[in-house]
Design a protein around this nucleic acid. Structure first.
Length: 346
DNA sequence: TCTGGGGTCCTAGGACCC
DNA sequence: TCTGGGGTCCTAGGACCC
């Protein structure tokens, strides 16, 4: 019998800022782009639960957040700090797992099948984890326990913040039945809209579609939806991930076609990417340039090289070639990004 | 209301080879 | 003059995740 725990740190960035700054505790806190009195260009990265009372959410344009709550505390993203806190917490979590998989900066899966052996013992482990994170890092998390990663993940999202939700195999189907299909990883807004058009708004209703119907509508992921709706997920808790690509991107303050500005941005991104390639001891074979125009339409142009290389000049040089293609279009440019892929270790 | 930055995976068409 | 089938690589776009 498999038992998986999913841990999700609550409002992670905002919670760290509140911990570090006693004076902002209890106020709405929004971590993300500079709102610039409603003219800021970025989005909300994370906000605390006070801010959520105003309808503010992750991913929302910062200008919209500003309109909803001008009195909130707006803070820039301090990624280095969050990374450092995350690393400490991941070490704590690792010690409680047979196998461990971090998932982004603020989530992790723990396979505890062996050391727990039963759901009652898994609950004890989860409570110990909560207590340790609270004591050592002054932060809360929401935890889900289930027979696989899928159920553990959905369970951790069921009660937030500071929640603990256990779904035993016998309860799995009843647990899933009333939930929105959007809670299934891989089902996003587009897929949910198609399902809604088919009259499907719960996972129970999703179960009424045949496997063939789902694969006709959604291809390979349709098969995953079929299994997920039934709580089936055999994917292992896996410790190591292989990096497939390294990239940087930047949104300009103002849309531009200024070649000096564009080249300077490419140069900076190429340097960043190159230093990471060197650090990770990777060669690349493909360079991809992303261009987002003023109207938000986004294109990608890529070029593969005959032989793998680590050359910084080629990252920048190929990117400039590809930029020339993108500049044939007369629209102003909002964002450019450079990415290298087909990585090979050396 | 106006949309960040870091990624992964899937699909589909065309070129090319046998 | 009209015409196969399979495999691989490359490119572009799209959906999704944190």
């Amino acid at each position: 019998m498999r038992i998986v725990i999913h841990v999700d740190l609550d409002a992670f960035f905002a919670a760290i800022e509140e911990r570090e700054r006693p004076e902002i505790r209890g106020k709405p806190v929004i971590v993300g782009a500079d709102p610039k009195a409603g003219r800021g260009r970025g989005v909300v990265s994370t906000c605390n639960y006070e801010a959520r009372k105003f309808g503010i959410r992750s991913g929302m344009p910062i200008a919209v957040a500003w309109r909803k709550c001008r009195t909130a505390v707006y803070l820039p993203v301090n990624f280095e700090l969050y990374e450092a806190v995350s690393a400490k917490i991941m070490q704590i979590l690792k010690r409680h797992a047979d196998r461990f998989e971090s998932w982004g900066i603020d989530e992790a899966y723990l396979d505890v099948s062996k050391r727990a052996g039963s759901y009652d013992r898994a609950i004890k482990i989860a409570k110990a984890i909560k207590a340790e994170i609270r004591q050592k890092e002054k932060l809360t998390c929401s935890i889900g326990i289930g027979p696989n990663k899928l159920i553990a993940k959905i369970a951790s999202g069921f009660k937030k913040p500071d929640g603990l939700t256990v779904v035993r195999p016998s309860q799995m189907l009843e647990f899933l039945r009333p939930l929105n299909p959007l809670v299934i990883p891989g089902i996003g807004p587009k897929t949910a809209a198609v399902l809604r058009d088919l009259g499907i708004t719960t996972i129970g209703q999703l179960r009424r579609l045949r496997k063939t119907e789902l694969s006709e509508h959604f291809g390979k992921v349709g098969i995953w939806f079929y299994e997920a709706a039934r709580g089936i997920d055999t994917s292992p808790v896996q410790e190591v991930w292989i990096i497939k690509s390294i990239g940087r991107q930047h949104t300009f303050e103002r849309d531009t076609r200024d070649i000096k500005l564009l080249y300077a941005q490419i140069k900076e991104q190429a340097a960043d990417i190159h230093s990471e390639l060197v650090g990770q001891r990777f060669l690349y074979r493909t360079v991809t340039l992303t261009v987002r125009y003023q109207d938000f339409t986004t294109i990608q142009r890529s070029k593969s090289l005959a032989t793998p290389t680590q050359s910084i000049e080629l990252i920048a040089g190929v990117s400039k070639e590809l930029l020339a293609l993108a500049l044939r279009d007369p629209r102003k440019i909002r964002l450019i990004g450079v990415r290298v892929s087909r990585l090979i270790g050396h």
